[in-house]
Design a protein around this nucleic acid. Structure first.
Length: 746
DNA sequence: TTCTCTAGAATTTTT
DNA sequence: TTCTAGAGAA
């Protein structure tokens, strides 16, 4: 669809007609209305697949091309970096290279950009660190312990969630304390307050701070706000239904008296309430801007009538919504296919079979997506697809930048940019092991606290810490020396800095020394990180950033930008088109995407809707919206399946099919039962070919499904744990688990 | 101080 | 099932 659009909008065609709005030729009347209403508040109620991205793109192009607005006066907020990139590209196709100076980003990225300039006013370093969920959980945990509270009664995760919720609602710790009495509540307020103090001391912000601190910055410094108001005259917010209170407050601040806001959203697709998103924002928008022009887009250009009717029928079960019925003129298409599986292997086998069938019909693997409720479902699906030889790509599950080894390296880099970042310093002070154990850390910590200096500063003055054993003191000196050397490498930029950690510090060696299957994977990830950094450098070459051109920046500043990009990416940002593989991801990640063929698997009570959401009516409605989002991702074919039994978290469960299945009118669904289930199930369960430890020996030639021919170098362990190291020549040496690897002896 | 082992816990969705 | 924190031994 996107390709078609770009073709239709050749820049030449635009220039040919300077008076009219040739831009709008392929918008329908409502879309045109939304795109043309540039002054004042506009709320675009955009149903799934109704072309809202197109509206936004054309609207921005219209502002720049026809109304003479400067690109740097236009801001567009999207939900993911990927969406931002796509939008930039599309607008770029209409207006040319000037698009580079336009602000298109996520809320978080935009806030970081503002804060890098302005945060020093609030006592943060300009090079402040961004803590992800893990870092912030660590900080909360230590805060709880330091207050002598029991983590049993104050579970860090829950406390963190409470703090996060408060921040999303712009409640700082002082108002949090005031809000409510009660012993427990007071303690939580204490934790919040200590946590926040620690963050400030470390010049660190968590994800929620990025928003909240920006809002309070604008509150405290009206002249700063004014600067940005003058700069960003036209605001666009995509996925408005999933904004939280802090984000809405920010939008209102920026819009100021000019009030040029275009909010685009669909209440039926609100799926991030659990993360603080607040549908009230849509209602409040109408209240706060009573004169807002409201445009409803209800023609769907994506899905067949069958798919739409089914989705409409499901979402109709939610109460309190503005009745809205999407329609489409793309024809009825095929019925929805339903498959009742015996267990999750059977279900995955169905997907694999169907994928093969669809391929014969002319669909590419990259046209297909498998959507599920929880990441845990991906494992079996992946195994089975691999065995069937269906190429696939899992998005999410274990996030790359959250892996331990990656975070270790990043921690080294972070302490270079921000020496106050105690969490990062403590994380790596003894990695690889260099003899700085918890005792030493505790002693240094006490000194740091007494002197009111950072942990790293305390390490630098370790000769003043008399409690330190001679050996520990030596180890500390060793660490400081390593950091010094790393600092030199970092002057050359991010890639050199990463290599510095891996090579100079010997982190890679340390990981590899433990030569297990797991360690091998880690080492591979680390190498991937190096190429990630190199890629980042290449991509940034010639780019303009707020602080100046990439070419003029010093290595440290470049490193900062790299770290920032790494912290704010989501896995969906990595999704590439044309990879020739079936995409697997959670329903949440699928938001904003579309596929010719969609499989929705695991449609069972307890899984979808999820167990934890079944009791609360509001949460149940959110699950239903999630279902609606999933269904409306499909353009031509929709397959839904459920399984009578399923292993979940190590124990078997047996389930009823989801109520959402019941809500789909039966005449739209065709049961897929005519398959030889037993045969498939067997083949789905047993690997077609694997070898056992007894069958192979050193020197044997074997063939692997993906890596081809290789020679066995060693065999260790036995039974299920038998591993072999195999040299695949060009594909390198691999360590494989024999019970799993698709191998054949030659 | 470090490594290993075990028990125990936690498993919804994520910028 | 998978991961993590904590205890205990070298």
């Amino acid at each position: 669809m996107m390709a078609v659009m770009v073709q239709l909008m050749e820049p030449d065609a635009l220039g040919a007609d300077p008076d009219g709005f040739p831009l709008f030729d392929d918008l329908n009347p409502r879309q045109r209305e939304a795109a043309a209403a540039t002054e004042g508040p506009v709320l675009v109620v955009a149903g799934a697949g109704s072309g809202k991205t197109r509206v936004l793109t054309y609207r921005v192009a219209h502002l720049i091309r026809n109304l003479g607005v400067s690109p740097w006066e236009v801001m567009a907020i999207t939900f993911t970096n990927k969406a931002a990139g796509e939008m930039k590209e599309r607008v770029g196709g209409l207006v040319g290279g000037v698009v580079r100076s336009m602000w298109v980003s996520t809320f978080h990225s935009a806030c970081v950009r503002i804060l890098r300039r302005e945060a020093p006013r609030l006592g943060y370093r300009s090079a402040f660190t961004i803590y992800d969920a893990q870092d912030s959980l660590r900080a909360v945990t230590t805060a709880i312990k330091d207050l002598d509270l029991d983590v049993k009664y104050y579970p860090p995760r829950r406390i963190r969630a409470a703090i996060s919720k408060a921040k999303n609602e712009l409640v700082d710790y002082e108002s949090f304390r005031r809000r409510d009495e009660g012993f427990r509540r007071r303690n939580v307020a204490e934790i919040y307050s200590l946590y926040q103090q620690r963050l400030l001391d470390a010049s660190a912000m968590d994800f929620d701070d990025l928003l909240m601190v920006t809002v309070s910055l604008f509150d405290a410094f009206p002249e700063v706000l004014e600067y940005y108001q003058d700069r960003l005259r036209y605001l666009h917010v995509d996925e408005f239904q999933d904004t939280n209170r802090a984000q809405y407050a920010l939008v209102r601040q920026l819009a100021g008296r000019r009030r040029n806001i275009c909010a685009v959203g669909d209440a039926d697709q609100a799926i991030y309430r659990f993360r603080g998103a607040d549908i009230r924002n849509i209602r409040d928008f109408r209240k706060d801007y009573p004169d807002a022009r409201i445009v409803v887009l209800d023609q769907n250009y994506r899905s067949t009538e069958t798919i739409l009717s089914a989705a409409n029928a499901v979402i109709a079960n939610n109460g309190g919504r503005d009745p809205k019925r999407l329609w489409s003129d793309l024809g009825r298409g095929r019925p929805i296919t339903r498959f009742n599986a015996e267990d999750e292997h059977d279900e995955a086998g169905f997907v694999a079979d169907a994928a093969a069938g669809l391929e014969l019909e002319g669909f590419a693997h990259s046209d297909m997506a498998v959507l599920y409720r929880v990441n845990a479902q991906s494992r079996v699906m992946e195994d089975v697809l691999t065995r069937y030889g269906v190429p696939h790509n899992v998005i999410g599950s274990v996030r790359f930048y959250e892996r331990r080894e990656i975070k270790d390296v990043l921690a080294y880099l972070r302490l270079l940019c921000n020496p106050d970042d105690d969490i990062s310093v403590k994380r790596v002070v003894n990695l690889p092991r260099r003899g700085i154990g918890s005792t030493t850390v505790g002693r240094v910590d006490r000194f740091a606290e007494a002197q009111r200096i950072s942990f790293l500063a305390a390490l630098n003055r370790s000769d003043e810490i008399h409690t330190l054993a001679a050996r520990s003191a030596g180890a500390v000196r060793g660490f400081l020396e390593v950091v010094g050397r790393l600092r030199e490498r970092a002057a050359e930029g991010p890639a050199a800095a990463v290599k510095g950690v891996l090579e100079d510090i010997g982190y890679l060696d340390w990981v590899e020394r433990e030569s297990t299957l797991e360690a091998l994977g880690r080492a591979e990830n680390l190498r991937e990180l190096v190429s990630g950094a190199e890629e980042f450098e290449q991509r940034s070459e010639g780019e303009y950033f707020d602080g100046g051109d990439w070419g003029e920046m010093d290595g440290l500043r470049r490193l900062e930008l790299f770290l920032e990009s790494v912290t704010l990416v989501s896995d969906i940002d990595e999704l590439k088109d044309g990879s020739g593989a079936v995409t697997m991801m959670t329903l949440h990640s699928a938001k904003g995407l579309e596929f010719p063929v969609v499989f929705m698997v695991g449609m069972e009570e307890g899984l979808f809707p999820h167990q934890l959401s079944m009791t609360d009516p509001e949460q149940l409605e959110e699950e239903r919206r999630l279902c609606y989002v999933g269904m409306t991702r499909a353009r031509q074919r929709l397959h839904i399946s459920w399984s009578r039994t399923r292993m979940l978290y190590g124990s078997p469960t047996s389930n009823l099919y989801s109520r959402f299945l019941k809500e789909i009118p039966v005449d739209l669904v065709e049961l897929n039962g005519g398959r030889k289930r037993t045969r498939r199930r067997e083949s789905a369960r047993s690997a077609p070919r694997t070898l056992s430890g007894e069958e192979v020996g050193v020197g044997d030639r074997v063939e692997h499904d993906t890596w081809g021919e290789g020679e066995v170098l060693s065999v260790t362990g036995d039974g299920d744990r038998a591993e072999a190291v195999i040299d695949f020549g060009a594909d390198g040496k691999r360590r494989v688990l024999l019970t799993w690897a698709p191998l054949e002896k030659l």
